[in-house]
């Protein structure tokens, strides 16, 4: 986990000392990075040139350094941490099975995966129900 904003590392320290450590025992455990000028945010496409700040962008990067997913929100709405964890779990499963299994809509650990292949073509309706996306 790495967090990035345009604030200096000094501001990060004060935020952690004065506020975040009151929400998280021992303070924030991961590196809080500084991107003054937005150079990093710009290459990831999340730096808002007009406002001079980063949007709420979240990128999942796999062990090979490949971006597997991202989500970008405007500032007033926070992220869903459980959904981020679910996506990582799903990508880890796909990676463990070397793509042999895929995580259908609504998948979470313990739920049924699909095994893409010639025998599944046109037969997903037998294996997977739309209700499984919502339960």
């Amino acid at each position: 986990m790495l967090s990035v904003s345009i604030d200096s590392m000094f501001v990060h320290k004060m935020w952690d000392d004065d506020e975040l450590s009151k929400m998280v025992d021992g303070g924030v455990p991961f590196p809080m990075l500084s991107d003054a000028g937005g150079k990093v945010g710009r290459i990831y496409g999340v730096f808002d040139e007009n406002a001079g700040v980063e949007n709420r962008g979240r990128f999942l990067i796999d062990p090979d350094g490949v971006i597997q997913g991202f989500e970008v929100l405007t500032p007033p709405v926070g992220r869903n941490v459980m959904e981020t964890i679910r996506q990582i779990q799903a990508f880890q499963l796909v990676r463990q099975t070397k793509g042999g299994e895929a995580a259908p809509s609504g998948w979470r650990p313990g739920k049924k995966t699909l095994k893409p292949g010639i025998n599944l073509v046109g037969k997903v309706w037998k294996e997977w129900k739309t209700s499984m996306a919502f339960d």
Binding site: L2, S5, G27, P31, I61, D64, T84
Partner: peptide
């Protein structure tokens, strides 16, 4: 550059190769 648990640090993304990374941008502290 950044801050982590009482220390000022410098982080390089590629140092984390081999692990899953969640990289989160946000408007400001």
């Amino acid at each position: 550059p950044g801050y982590q648990k009482g220390k000022f640090i410098t982080v390089k993304l590629s140092d984390y190769l081999g692990k899953w990374i969640v990289l989160c941008f946000y408007p400001g502290d």
